[in-house]
Computed example of a mutant assay.
Amino acid sequence: MTINLSPETVRLLLVLAATVAAHYLARRALQQAEKVAAHTENVWDDSLIAAARKPLPLLIWVGGISFALHLLHRQTDEALLEYVAPVRSIAIVICISWFLLKLIRELADNMVAARIRAGGHVDRTTVDGLGKVARISVFVVAAMAVMQTLGFSLSGVLAFGGMGGIAVGFAAKDLLANFFGAVMIHLDRPFNVGDAVRSPDKNIEGWVEQIGWRQTIIRSPDKTPLYVPNSLFTSIVVENPSRMSHRRIRETIGLRYEDIGRMENIVEEVRTMLDQHPDIDNEQPSFVAFDQFADSSINFVIQAFSKTTELKQYHAIKQEILLQVAAIIARNGADFAFPTRTVLLNQTPA
């Protein structure tokens, strides 16, 4: 049996067949390129291939189907098919935007992973900040391209945005304050993701887990998440212990008043012990000195700075120093003071 096909139908079938073939070849090419890229150290090829894995086949089908509908429109003059061209343009913008968004995310993840494998320092805050700015830029450009495709005047849209921006600013002032607070965090960088922070002004203490455009997530010492608006960081003092160069040991030791004669030797031996301690930085202002005649004790003060900032090691060093101070006091025949009270009784002669 002979099937007679019109030239238009043949052209449509050829377009669809070419689309299927292009889709197959694109998938095969991406698979081969992925195998080759797996043996390289370059993060760009891995990111480009991963980002194009889904948008590229979709773009091929958009092109093939839109061309087939264009041929069908020439054959039938269907009015509805006149919208194929703008829909195709919008679909192409969506595919390209999808590819760029995936590329930004893949690049950020691959660069961070490569730095970690190399043993280098990773500034996750900067990477996240640049990624967010890039994604916003893609969204804005894509939205403007879609509006222009739909026939909107960009100059009119921008003018309307300028007038509406005032109203939006008043209605969403808190949201904008948090947004600009996030911008200042990324610019000034008072802390990064993973840093331990605290604020003496507010009941805020913990480790930074995420810096968003509206709020920052901090995990408190009891593992409770704190959601802090970014605008708050522009008006409070934030301490960042993660960036301290040393940790300070400062203790006041109280001796009995009857040990006043032993104070000088004890202070001198403690000072010598600190000077010879391998974990104490003698370049910092360390000292040991008789400090005060207190109510129930005579006090001397110890100040020293450990070379390490790691909390567990710091407490181990502090414990060792305090035990050595106790041994020095005992060796000199002195003892620690405790609160005492002397009561004088006036006895009346009988």
Rank of each mutant, 00 (worst) to 15 (best):
M1S: 15
T2V: 08
P7D: 09
E8V: 14
T9P: 03
R11T: 15
L14T: 12
V15P: 00
L16W: 11
T19P: 07
V20K: 11
Y24W: 14
Y24P: 01
A26D: 03
A33N: 06
E34I: 00
A38T: 11
H39W: 02
T40L: 12
N42L: 07
W44E: 07
D45A: 09
D46K: 15
S47Y: 05
L48N: 01
A51I: 07
A52H: 03
K54I: 13
K54Y: 12
L56A: 12
I60Q: 04
W61C: 08
V62A: 11
I65E: 01
S66K: 09
L69F: 12
H70L: 06
L72Y: 14
L72A: 08
R74W: 10
A79H: 06
L81N: 05
P86G: 06
C95S: 07
I96C: 02
L100N: 10
L103M: 05
I104Q: 01
R105L: 01
E106L: 00
N110E: 10
V112Y: 00
A113M: 15
R115H: 07
A118W: 05
G119S: 10
V127W: 11
V127F: 14
G129I: 08
G129M: 14
G129V: 03
K132W: 03
K132R: 04
R135E: 15
S137R: 04
A142C: 03
A143S: 13
A145C: 04
A145P: 02
A145F: 07
Q148I: 06
F152N: 14
L154M: 14
L158W: 15
M163N: 07
G165Y: 14
F170I: 13
A172S: 10
A172I: 09
K173C: 01
A177W: 01
G181E: 11
A182G: 13
M184K: 15
M184W: 02
M184D: 15
I185K: 08
I185S: 09
H186I: 07
P190K: 11
V193I: 15
D195L: 12
P200E: 13
N203H: 11
I204M: 08
E209K: 12
Q210W: 06
Q215K: 06
I217L: 13
S220E: 12
K223N: 14
L226V: 04
V228T: 06
P229I: 00
L232F: 02
F233Y: 12
T234G: 00
T234R: 15
T234E: 13
V238C: 01
N240E: 08
R247V: 11
R248I: 04
I249D: 02
I249M: 10
D259L: 09
G261M: 04
R262D: 01
R262E: 07
N265H: 14
I266V: 05
V270S: 09
M273H: 08
Q276V: 00
H277T: 00
S286P: 05
Q292P: 01
Q292R: 10
S297Y: 04
N299I: 08
I302D: 11
I302Y: 08
T309S: 06
K312V: 15
Q313N: 03
K318A: 12
Q324N: 15
V325D: 10
A326F: 02
A326Q: 08
I328C: 12
I329D: 04
I329G: 06
N332A: 06
G333W: 03
G333C: 09
A334L: 13
A334Q: 04
A334T: 00
V343P: 00
L345C: 00
L345V: 14
Q347R: 14
